[in-house]
Write a protein that binds this DNA or RNA. Structure first.
Lengths: 281, 281
DNA sequence: AACTATTATGACGATTCGTCAAGTTGACGA
DNA sequence: TCGTCAACTTGACGAATCGTCATAATAGTT
């Protein structure tokens, strides 16, 4: 199997088994029970960190608090995450993984290519609403302040996940092309079009999440706004069928009922318990 | 003792270019020289803070460092900014004010309504490139972690500025309607359409600024991407003339040459001195 | 059991945030 | 010019946090 990492002896003492699971389809390839236990503990720590952040807000996540909340000492925690930024980066990875799962679920929606893309956007917004703190976490991880202090391994993982997320979107353009819904576009343009879709979904979602700006758009129906914006842009791409000749609001609602019923009820439950909007502080 | 608007004739700042009450609280009327001096000092502190952030990065801005860098004591600095978040909020206001100035400049571009909207986007991107750290600053200020600890007065100012920025955009929709370039839209829809434009401009700009995602779009021509995305969406709105029948790339370049020549040369100068991209850490 | 490589511990120094009691300033009236 | 007092300034301080490292504990091997 894999050769043991004997080479880098200087780091050996300080780095524990940061699981080298760059490949998502992972065999758990741990030599010892010990490393296995360490990897499992990392997941426990991450869940704890996520809970701390959801409860006490974004700035309420502290290495000291995490240490106090778990059964291990500071040194042990620092063996897993070399800095607070590294922890953030790990949380970002966790968020992207669940996002990817939602994406895969969304692309199973039965419908034409454009409906599937809307389903993807539905998943994107759903994820942001379910985990608003993690959404900010992903944003923050792009900041150089974080990126510069995160371990290279995690940065690589982030990059891979980003590509996988983008690939799900790209495939829909290929599908639309095959179905004849998108004409006169070169395959080389797909990256550009895909980026446009991503930018619109991200921009709309992020702005709607931001509290103060919400005052400006409170007159709008938040639920419909993302779909509305995406439709504007997809019409601009001449992606058939156009929104004037197809009831995408019906599709949007069906995505919620047919694919994400569980998540939506969780969301309702959640917002009942904790006020109007998820706390992010 | 509260004689408010009596002594303004003696304190009038004769600024070239009729500055009536556009900026809400910059040129207030001060009762005493002392308060005048304090207000001026606040501007000095803000400039210092901005420089600290540009030099040492986003996380390099510290109250302690600011205190060390200026000639005043900690208590005095805290008299101006009640917390680090309040300072961030003040920087955000500063950023939005310069952005508003760029917006006004942009709307003077000679052309049809859609060209003017593109000019606005040009200004938006320009501002982000000129002050990447301030761009992140504005983003961060929307975060509850910051908003909850900023003074109410600053939050109000932010809200006013936000409305003014949005109003510049809204006016272009009115203009397009009057010119017959946008048909079949109710005025009630303007807020929605304006939000869509804002979301697209913000999403595209923010994603392109984020370092790691830039790897995904490095194949694209960054310079053209924002314009491309905006055109997709504006075509979707049926905002005439459509991009298929008008050379907006020419307009885009003319905006740079005719309106923002100075800023562009500053930008080039800046990027020469300090590597490829602005540091944000 | 003894030995060694790996992991765990928590006290510690360094930074940073924000406060406050004591000291200083300056506008104003006498 | 001087005294007064409200407003402003100062910097030492306590609390919280970050990250390190010498030392203790443990698992695996002989």
């Amino acid at each position: 199997m894999t050769i043991r990492q004997v080479d880098d002896s200087s780091k050996m003492n300080f780095k524990i088994g940061c699981d080298t699971d760059k490949s998502p389809c992972l065999f758990k390839k741990f030599k010892t029970k010990r490393q296995q236990a360490i990897a499992e503990r990392e997941q426990v720590l991450l869940c704890l960190a996520e809970r701390l952040m959801e409860e006490h807000g974004f700035s309420g996540l502290t290495m000291d608090k995490l240490v106090a909340a778990c059964d291990y000492s500071k040194g042990t925690v620092y063996n897993h995450f070399s800095s607070k930024e590294d922890l953030l980066s790990a949380l970002c990875i966790k968020a992207m993984k669940t996002e990817l799962q939602l994406f895969h679920k969304a692309s199973n929606f039965k419908g034409n290519a454009r409906e599937k893309l809307l389903a993807l956007c539905f998943a994107y917004r759903l994820h942001a609403l379910l985990h608003p703190t993690l959404f900010y976490c992903v944003l923050t991880s792009k900041t150089p302040a974080v990126a510069e202090r995160a371990s290279q391994e995690r940065l690589d993982t982030q990059f891979v996940l980003e590509q996988q997320l983008a690939e799900v979107c790209n495939q829909l353009f290929v599908l639309a092309m095959e179905d004849g819904d998108l004409q006169g576009r070169e395959e080389a343009e797909f990256a550009q079009l895909s980026f446009a879709a991503w930018a619109m979904a991200f921009g709309s979602t992020a702005l709607m999440l931001a509290a103060s700006t919400a005052q400006l758009v409170q007159a709008l129906e938040e639920e419909k706004t993302l779909m509305f914006n995406m439709n504007l842009m997809l019409d601009g791409m001449q992606w058939l069928p156009l929104s004037s000749e197809f009831d995408y609001w019906d599709s949007w609602q069906r995505v919620g009922m047919e694919v994400f019923a569980d998540e939506l009820s969780t969301l309702k439950e959640h917002s009942k318990h904790s006020g109007a909007k998820g706390k992010i502080t």
